[in-house]
Design a protein around this nucleic acid. Structure first.
Lengths: 235, 235
DNA sequence: CTGTGATGTAAAAGTCATACTTAATTGGCT
DNA sequence: AGCCAATTAAGTATGACTTTTACATCACAG
């Protein structure tokens, strides 16, 4: 299979090819691409190429200037919060680096989000939370990592949305990607850390009773654990 | 002056008009816009409108579907981390809400960033940091809020970049916008809180000597102070 | 001879108009 | 209810034209 974006029309096909190439670093910063060349390479009209370029430009991956062409921007200027950029980088070669950045971000955001969730969570959300925590307990032994992962991601998604902060809520997908990525590494070899499971149960409880400080502290333990785990696995 | 984006070409003009309108909520979620109408309204070709739509679509502000049109998406799905979206919302009518979200985000991120900065900052960055802290001290009295603001934003920018985490570093502009926005409210009426100034000096010192825990704790004081300040000023 | 500044040219993005294709909603018909 | 056709609006292609601007050329002063 040459390209993954085949049934989606030319625009998506070009974007889903060029984007990953750029984020993977195939074109060093400063490289100039010309729209005519791209049109020829992908066998599409200049119209399609221009629209793709505009999207890449809105991600700050490239800058388009008259008489010079489309220039690839340095990494530090990229919109690293754009979900597609995150996805591309997670799929590409600096996946470890990206995973690390995101885990650090998690360690900053999730504890605060948990604290806010303790103050703002609705009864429904509390129920969801304890449900998923119990689900994690139930699936934490006996090579059921897939089912465990479902509950784990759902748990963190509820925390982030229950925080009541839109910025936190929008990180739910990112956290899900990190958790999924992590699981894909120790593929079904080791059951999840029992201590982590316990912590999730305790967080759910703290949120339920509205103990913000405790929810925050416990979540901080979870995320620092996640970072430690990352240090063990990656260089 | 009708539009601010005049010397920038049709594309920028349309984007800088339509984007703010959408983020301001002028079009309730579910509203459909048709490209032909927009082309007529702005007196540009469909080409330009389509490219703008593609950009708005990449910000998740709208979704474009055949035979139906361009539909405005609900707020929860927007790319709230896109710098332009942030800017538009800060300029629009739910500026208070946005300012609050961002301040909460700051309270999560900056302390952790400061802790990392204490571990990773180069001597140059330490020097910059203390320089700006001293600059804040020097400009903290006598209605010099403008000069103070310059040092303040620079200070936080150094912290975020010195953390060594790309995701944190990319929030520097956002934090700058928040600080600027805050200053624009108490316009030259009150000098900055002396306690806050002292905290910045202490953070610079903690970073310099590599005391991560102290840097984090002190920064947490700064950000909680910022949140408290916001509660006083806004409903 | 050299450095500096004006000028002209060409290259590439930007815009426009138009014709055509494709997908999906709608409504009518069986 | 289910299927089919008509219609609608986005998507794509093409070609002509405009605008900006990097770059080279040349003139002139030092």
């Amino acid at each position: 299979m040459e390209n993954e974006g085949q049934g989606k029309g030319p625009h998506a096909r070009v974007l889903e090819t060029l984007g990953p190439e750029i984020t993977a670093g195939d074109f060093p910063p400063g490289t100039v691409l010309r729209t005519d060349e791209l049109a020829e390479r992908f066998d599409v009209s200049r119209t399609v190429v221009r629209e793709v370029i505009r999207v890449l430009e809105s991600m700050q991956l490239v800058v388009s200037r008259r008489r010079v062409g489309v220039t690839v921007r340095p990494t530090e200027e990229w919109n690293v919060y754009d979900p597609r950029v995150i996805g591309w980088r997670l799929a590409g070669r600096d996946r470890p680096r990206q995973l690390r950045s995101l885990t650090v971000l998690r360690s900053a955001v999730e504890p605060v989000a948990a604290g806010l969730a303790a103050a703002h969570a609705t009864p429904d959300q509390c129920a969801e939370l304890t449900g998923h925590a119990m689900g994690m307990v139930a699936t934490s032994r006996g090579q059921q990592l897939d089912a465990y992962l479902v509950h784990d991601t759902a748990f963190h998604r509820v925390i982030l949305t229950a925080s009541g902060n839109e910025m936190f809520a929008r990180l739910a997908d990112v956290v899900a990607a990190v958790l999924t990525g992590r699981t894909q590494h120790h593929v079904m070899f080791t059951d999840p850390d029992p201590a982590a499971v316990t912590l999730h149960v305790q967080v759910a409880e703290a949120v339920r009773v509205g103990d913000a400080a405790r929810a925050e502290a416990l979540t901080r333990e979870i995320t620092t654990g996640a970072m430690a785990e990352l240090d063990v696995l990656a260089p």
